[in-house]
């Protein structure tokens, strides 16, 4: 695994933006991350994929400084998340997976408060988020309470709140959930532009088709360890020219999917034919 990083940046001189070494994390007795080692370089879009419960969100939260109780070392631009979480938080824009926001507030109020927390002057913040929300087609909803918003509208407000302070590292946890097809295209386009301007993007998701299209590099985790790491082309070359969906399935599921499907079909005749079909 160690060798693979050098496919991307053979020159030792480039400093990784995110450095994760030997990361372990447990919730009570349940060990979620079992030694993650990962370096992410400037301008990369990392697609961080894995089945439910593999530890995707946990990794994202640790990089953001939301979870402090972990073993190993995580650095963002050379700053240790454990030692100086505040400095790291200033560099990061985080878009959480659930549409978690204070929905009794209006987007204008919510984003103004968030701007205060990033120490962006109110005037400048207002100009920025008004522009961003208008681009998302929410200019008429600026002073409307978010209680009535659809999931997609809330997600757009969250994306704006994550990008508003022009962060160097952007961490997105399922950012496209609830968005309609047009908004998905806009966000994909936006991510490419952000990466082109030198931002580093850590994109955690299980929407394979999107990950396949936008990521420079795909990191697949399973059972708390990295199961595959590389560009989509490299992964294809290694795994026999399959789609990402198939590669994912091969690496993460214990039995073949067709067996599962067969088992489901079996349920209809479980009284008479189970023995014959399993025999």
């Amino acid at each position: 695994m160690e060798k693979m990083y050098h496919y991307f940046y053979p020159m030792e001189s480039i400093q990784p933006v995110i450095e994760i070494s030997n990361l372990h994390k447990s919730y009570s007795k349940n060990q979620v991350l079992k030694g993650i080692n990962l370096n992410v370089y400037p301008g990369q879009i990392i697609g961080y994929i894995g089945p439910n419960g593999a530890g995707k969100s946990t990794t994202a939260k640790i990089i953001c400084g939301l979870l402090s109780n972990f073993e190993g070392e995580v650095r963002v631009k050379g700053i240790s998340v454990k030692e100086n979480p505040l400095a790291v938080k200033k560099l990061i824009g985080y878009v959480p997976e659930l549409a978690e926001l204070y929905e009794v507030l209006t987007p204008h109020e919510f984003l103004s408060f968030m701007a205060d927390l990033y120490e962006i002057p109110r005037q400048q913040a207002e100009e920025r988020f008004t522009k961003m929300l208008s681009a998302f087609g929410l200019s008429n909803n600026l002073h409307q309470r978010m209680e009535t918003f659809s999931k997609g509208m809330r997600q757009k407000v969250l994306i704006v709140s994550g990008l508003m302070h022009n962060p160097e590292v952007i961490i997105l946890d399922e950012p496209l959930s609830g968005l309609d097809a047009n908004s998905v295209i806009i966000v994909k386009e936006l991510l490419s532009k952000l990466a082109a301007s030198g931002k580093t993007i850590f994109y955690s998701s299980h929407m394979m088709d999107v990950v396949e299209k936008i990521s420079d590099r795909i990191v697949l985790i399973n059972h708390g360890v990295i199961a595959a790491d590389g560009t989509i082309e490299e992964l294809r070359a290694q795994k026999g020219n399959l789609s990402l969906e198939k590669i994912f399935a091969n690496l993460t599921s214990q039995g073949a999917h067709s067996d599962v499907a067969a088992e489901i079909m079996d349920a209809f005749d479980f009284i008479t034919e189970t023995k014959e079909s399993t025999a």
């Binding site: 505040l86 200033k90 959480p96 120490e119």
Partner: peptide
């Protein structure tokens, strides 16, 4: 004690 604070305020640079 609003648990949403964990997602909204904690990722921001607030000490």
């Amino acid at each position: 004690i609003d648990v949403r604070d964990n997602f909204i305020i904690l990722p921001k640079p607030v000490n």
